[in-house]
Amino acid sequence: MSLLVICDHDRGTLSDASLEALTFGRPLAAAAGLEMAAVVIGEGADAAAAGLGAHGASTVHVASHPLLTDFGPEAWGETVVQLVRGTGATAVLACGTDRGNEVVAQVAARLDQPFVANCRSVDPTGDGSGNWTMTRVQWGGSLLEDATLTAEIRLVTVAHHVVEGVAAEAPASGTMVSFVPELDDALARTVVADRVVLTRGITLSTAPVVVGGGRGVGSAEAFAPLEELAGELGGVVGCSRAVTNNGWRPHSDQVGQTGTRIAPEIYIASGISGAIQHWVGAMAAKNILAINTDREANMVTRAGHAVIGDLHQVIPAITEEVRRRRG
């Protein structure tokens, strides 16, 4: 009996998320008395599969089929279902990325089994009567839920960034086994037809500095000084939902539960009140500097540092001081 870990990769390079799933899966499999197996799907899967023994997978299933060359949620889900049936796996785990959650949801729907998404911890000894217990994330991380899972085949994802992906202390054999599922041609309907790359430099999710603006900025034009400061610091501009709702900035700039999660060295949050849905997207920042006229604003009380004042005066003054010191 095994725990099957779904590993995602980009043309042969394993994603960090997959390493997180394997790292989370090792103690889980051990506690559940299961062998840990992995599945890698699609073009480049061979290359991605090669290193998985080091991450604790005893068997690595390499799935290939003409319909699996690019991502397709239905074809991927069906492949995992056939593998579960063929190998007698009793649990499936993936990392809770958009793709991970979607593929496991496909597996769940096809097997008609429950699926618990975005767990922070899973206890397979659970309530003592064979049910697993877990703590999962709600509200994009603002709230936790303790739950029990009663199922023949346990389907879970681990919330992204809960663990860091590290190699196993004791590597497993990582025996590669090829697997060719039987897929209906009709599943081509949800396979990626085209891929468009918009090459940009630093993105909001990877920028070392994010200068954020909220409703307090007041207009689209008034973001110019924030752009200037961000440019000076090699960073990018982010914003709150109040800003995107007003049409001042594109949604791709939005930080938060329904926007982007950021993790910069410093987040300068100006004119943002710090609603919980904004905060969950910003809380991974190593440092937060709030600029707000309201000393009691949630963003101010939660930030490590704050300046009390009008952002329209404070931001240009910071830019000027940066330039002055650089000479």
């Binding site: 089994q113 429950p114 699926f115 618990v116 217990t133 709600q138 991380g141 603002s142 709230l143 936790l144 839920e145 303790d146 739950a147 029990t148 899972l149 009663t150 199922a151």
Partner: peptide
Amino acid sequence: GQVRLRLHRP
């Protein structure tokens, strides 16, 4: 098969 036990704040 998923049953809620309780909600709590992190």
